[in-house]
């Protein structure tokens, strides 16, 4: 089993619901965004580029098979599960940020200060504590917690805490355009494998040799 994701750019409406759901469910500190949606070719989101057509590109951890972030981590805090999810152990990370230098996708983010302080800075209301309150451990390793220590790196964890309950990641469930699909990339008959084959699925930065497990389906047109 190789768990992967397919994002249909034809269906993405650029609403950033995935980013919001992801941020809330995973209790991301203010200023931290595991998920982002951009408008390629344009300086602003949801503004068509001067040339070419408007489409939207959601980007988060690509859960690479040959993950440079995992290879550089001096303490094995970033590691891959058997199914190919690349996770961060919040109790192991020493905060050297080597993984951030190693990742070509810019999806890794550091807790530059205590998340409580950044919430104050952004003027979140004092009683606003988004996120699943329960810690989640995968074989003993802390891969989700509401309270992030300062000085560690975090990123998309493919919502492993929900997978344990048989649920899809928050971004998949929250997508109003139903643009996201999760499935087994090793199984040629799975829906995701079929979509990649039929619709010319592609990866970001394939020349970097990172072998992402996130595939994109090219858009053919976009209504404005």
């Amino acid at each position: 089993m190789k768990r992967g994701m397919v994002i249909d750019l034809e269906k993405c409406i650029g609403c950033r619901s995935c980013a919001v759901a992801c941020k809330s469910h995973n209790a991301q500190p203010a200023g931290t965004w595991w998920n982002r949606v951009l408008t390629p070719g344009s300086e602003y989101h949801a503004v068509p580029p001067e040339a070419g057509m408007e489409y939207f590109l959601p980007i988060h951890c690509q859960h690479c098979e040959n993950a440079p972030c995992e290879k550089v981590c001096p303490v094995g805090a970033t590691y891959s599960t058997e199914d190919g999810e690349v996770l961060v152990d919040y109790e192991r990370c020493i905060g050297c940020r080597y993984c951030m230098a190693a990742c070509p996708y810019g999806v890794r983010q550091f807790n530059w200060q205590d998340p409580k302080k950044s919430m104050d800075q952004y003027q979140y209301s004092a009683d606003y504590y988004p996120g699943n309150p329960r810690d989640f451990r995968l074989k003993g390793r802390l891969v989700y917690t509401l309270k992030r220590p300062k000085g560690i790196v975090e990123k998309c964890n493919f919502c492993v805490q929900y997978r344990a309950q048989g649920l899809d990641p928050a971004c998949v469930r929250a997508c109003p355009g139903k643009a996201r699909f999760v499935g087994d990339l090793d199984d040629p008959k799975s829906e995701v494998s079929r979509m990649i084959r039929r619709r010319n699925g592609f990866n970001l930065l394939p020349d970097k040799g990172t072998k992402p497990t996130v595939y994109y389906l090219p858009p053919s047109r976009k209504e404005l």
């Binding site: 200023g31 951009l38 390629p40 070719g41 040339a51 489409y55 590109l57 996708y105 090219p218 858009p219």
Partner: peptide, 24 residues
């Protein structure tokens, strides 16, 4: 940022994918 793309349908275009600065 290291993630630069050639957006579909744009000729000779190099475009950088913005990332969250993490600082207020």
């Amino acid at each position: 940022v290291p993630l630069t793309l050639h957006p579909l349908g744009i000729q000779h275009g190099e475009w950088s994918a913005a990332i969250a600065s993490g600082r207020y």
